[in-house]
Each structure stands twice: as structure tokens, then as C-alpha cells.
Write a protein that binds this DNA or RNA. Structure first.
Lengths: 226, 226
DNA sequence: GAGGGATTTGACCAAATGGTCAAGATGCAA
DNA sequence: TTGCATCTTGACCATTTGGTCAAATCCCTC
């Protein structure tokens, strides 16, 4: 994948990071994810990230040359895992199973890594200043590939004719909504994805709605629709 | 509706704003919407908003006592119109028509006021520091009311049994996604809602998917599903 | 355990930014 | 026209914040 600038400036012997570097970079990225996802790029402060990571601001800047470098590293760190689920959509599987599995994974991601979802949403909403090139290349390629998979399922008569891209957008939108808008969801329902029951309920509702939406249903859950 | 603090501090005779106040407050709110939606609360600067509004920073602060006051006023200004579509869901109408109309309105809003959508998304993602009370009262009441409408339709056998709240969340998520993530959508498809054809295509795709998802379809567009 | 690179930090700096204030400009009613 | 309230602004201030730097401390190798 096209990356975001890669390693920091910190010098080290050959390829590997030292034990201390490994640990500190990890602490920094974790703290940065928390701050950036909560406050956005502008709202987050280097000092606060450093404090969360348990070190001085100066030391943090020893590992990452600038606030923007921390931000990019954080983004790169989550991007791979964030887009991974779509890659698992298997052309040889059954549409209902595959889409259900994809939705399940996305909701699981929203439940486990809501900060990552918010960071990503924030970045894109601000115009994707850092990751636009990646969207235009890697993500575009991935979406095109998986759209073709869906097109093939449709052509094979395995599911209703829908625009694959809009289907993917709908899945992204709904699943990520539960992470990005969790405060609103909690205000309205009293629960959010951190509640296991609510997560199961959400997964069932979203899966059923979308599968029915494309003329499918899960065998385990009822009759056939197609 | 519970508001966000109401009028600024600027003194004026009785109830109405002067001609100049009217114009300037309007210019400020417009500029503020652009800045806050693009950069977030922290990223936006008072100076920049003032420049966009065509006045000095000092003058802007004559109309709004602080940056936060501008932000709250902007939020209040869009909130009413942003939540309006849901209110039009008519208990006496047919589910398919009503839901389709609601989705159409929401997509229309995303197309015409993407900044409002992003401002709202930003606010909620940061924990809704300003509007949480409104979410917990007014919006909660509205959602409860409209959920009951949907429950009644289900009880009347007019649509498939779905959790009304998740249905509403799904509609919000999908329709707002096209505004909030328009940069990503443009990167992947080459178009966004500012393109009339794409808007129509999106409306058709989302409406079909969601209506089918709840066991409905629009008479004009094909056979019955329920 | 001595030497040297890696790590850590406090002091410091310059720029950006939210907000104040007093003075001046403008609009309006009598 | 005059007087007053409204409106507008530049100068200014305090704070925050990203980033630098030299000095100290730590860690590891020989």
C-alpha cells in the first residue's frame, strides 16, 4: 500500500527498531489515536499526547519530528486494519454468507476500535488531506475489485441487481455510524456497541436489513427470499 | 426546543434586531458554518471567520461574545432544519411512500447542505459537548414518537418487523454518509451529490435497498414484495 | 567500568490565537 | 444640523502551542 511517509527521523543502526524505540513508538501511537480521535488534528496537543504516553513533549518529538508526523503515523497504523475486512469478501462464497460476515466484521471493528473509526471519519470529513492519494489508488482498486465480485454474483443470479458501490457505501455508513455517533446512539437508546447485547442486536438488525435489501437472507434465520 | 443560550449580548431596543445586526449576524453564521464544518471547532479561527464574513475580528466579537458563542449559534441555526425531515413522517401515510419521502428529503439535505451535515457530525463525534442535552430531550422524544409510528405500521401488518430505532439509524447513517464522506465518494466514483445524476442514482439505490430491507417497495417502481 | 551513542528533559522561542479596550466612524431621530 | 447610540476597527495583551537546543542521564558494548 502507498504509505504516508514511513519511519520517523530517529536514527538507528540497520532496519530494526531498538527495544526502547519499539515500546515508545507504540505508546505514542496509542496515545495519539486517543487524542486525535477525540479532538481532531487541530484540537489535539502534542503535550497532551506526550503526557498520555507517559513522557515529555521533547521526548515525543525525538521519536516523531512533528505533530503532523505523529498524525500520519497514527493514520497509517490504523488504515491497514481498518480496510482489512473488505479484503476477505470471498468470490467463491455465497453472497448471503459473505455479506453477513463482512457486516459482522465491520460492526466488530466499530465495537472494538471506535477511536480508529472516528479518526478515519475525521480525516475524510476534513477533505482527507493526508490519505486522499491512498483513497484514489489502493482503496479505489480494492473497491473496484470487490464491486466486480458483487457484479458476478448478480450476473450468476445469486442476488438482486444492485449497484455494488452503493451497497458498499451503505455497509460502511451503517456500521461505522455506530462507532462515530455512539454518543448520539447512547443518548437515544441508553446503550452503545460497548454493550455486548446491543452489539448483537445491532448486528442482527443491520444484517437483516441489508441482506433483505439485496434480496437475500441467512439460511439459519428464516426462509429464502431470492 | 431547548436552545443553546439564545441571542448574543449585543444590546438593542426591544425584541427585533436592527437592519445591520440582521445582516451581519447572518453573514457571520454563514461564514462560521463554512469554517467550522471544514476545520472543526478547534481548527477554525475567529479571524478567518471574520474575514470570510467581510469584517474585522473585533467587529465579529461585537456580535458574538466568544468563539464558542459563534459555534453554538451556528449549531442552533442548523439543528432545526437538520432534524426537520423526520418530523414529516406521517402516521396516516403508507410506509413505503413515507419512508421513501423521508429518505429523499435526507438525501436532498445532504446534497444542499453538506456543511451542516459535517458540522453536526463533528459535534457528535467529539462527544456532542454542546448539543448533548438536546439529543437527550428533544431528539429522544422525536425518535420515540416516530418509532411508535413505525411500530404501528408493523402491528398493522404494513411492513416487516424491524427495530424502528435501528431503521432510523440506518437511514441517518446512509444519507448523511454521502455528505460527510463526499471526498471519499468522489475519490472512488468520480462524483458526489453535487452531481444531479449521482444524487438521483444515490436516492434510487438507497431507497430501494432500505425499502426492500423492510419488506416494502414503491408501487411506481415494480412489483410488491410484502 | 569506560567510552560513546541512544534517550530524556527543562528551558526557551516564535507564531498563532482568543479576547479586550479605547477611540473613531457611521447612521438615525428630533 | 446636532446629539447620541450603534457600529467598526487597530493596537494591544495573555495564553497556548509546536518546535529547538544544549545539557544531562541511561544503556549497551568492548
Amino acid at each position: 500500500m502507498a504509505d504516508l511517509g514511513g519511519q520517523a527521523q530517529a536514527s538507528f543502526k540497520s532496519g530494526g527498531l531498538s527495544r526502547i524505540q519499539e515500546k515508545n513508538r507504540s505508546l505514542i501511537l496509542e496515545a495519539a489515536l486517543g487524542e486525535f480521535s477525540m479532538k481532531g488534528f487541530s484540537g489535539a496537543t502534542v503535550e497532551r499526547i506526550a503526557a498520555d504516553a507517559g513522557m515529555s513533549k521533547s521526548n515525543l518529538l525525538y521519536y516523531f519530528s512533528s505533530k503532523e508526523a505523529i498524525y500520519n503515523a497514527t493514520l497509517a497504523h490504523i488504515l491497514e486494519v481498518w480496510l482489512a475486512p473488505l479484503k476477505t469478501l470471498n468470490p467463491d462464497g455465497e453472497p448471503a454468507q459473505e455479506l453477513a460476515a463482512y457486516i459482522r466484521q465491520k460492526i466488530e471493528m466499530s465495537a472494538r476500535f471506535p477511536e480508529a473509526s472516528r479518526l478515519f471519519a475525521n480525516e475524510v470529513m476534513q477533505g482527507a488531506p493526508q490519505i486522499l492519494p491512498i483513497l484514489q489508488t489502493d482503496l479505489k482498486r480494492l473497491v473496484a475489485e470487490k464491486s466486480q465480485v458483487i457484479e458476478d454474483w448478480i450476473a450468476a443470479g445469486k442476488m438482486r441487481s444492485v449497484d455494488p458501490v452503493h451497497l458498499i457505501f451503505t455497509i460502511w455508513a451503517t456500521t461505522q455510524h455506530y462507532a462515530d455517533f455512539s454518543v448520539q446512539i447512547k443518548a437515544l437508546t441508553g446503550k452503545d456497541l460497548s454493550d455486548a447485547d446491543f452489539q448483537a442486536e445491532t448486528e442482527a438488525a443491520v444484517t437483516t436489513l441489508i441482506l433483505n435489501g439485496v434480496g437475500l437472507s441467512l439460511p439459519a434465520e428464516g426462509g429464502s427470499a431470492a
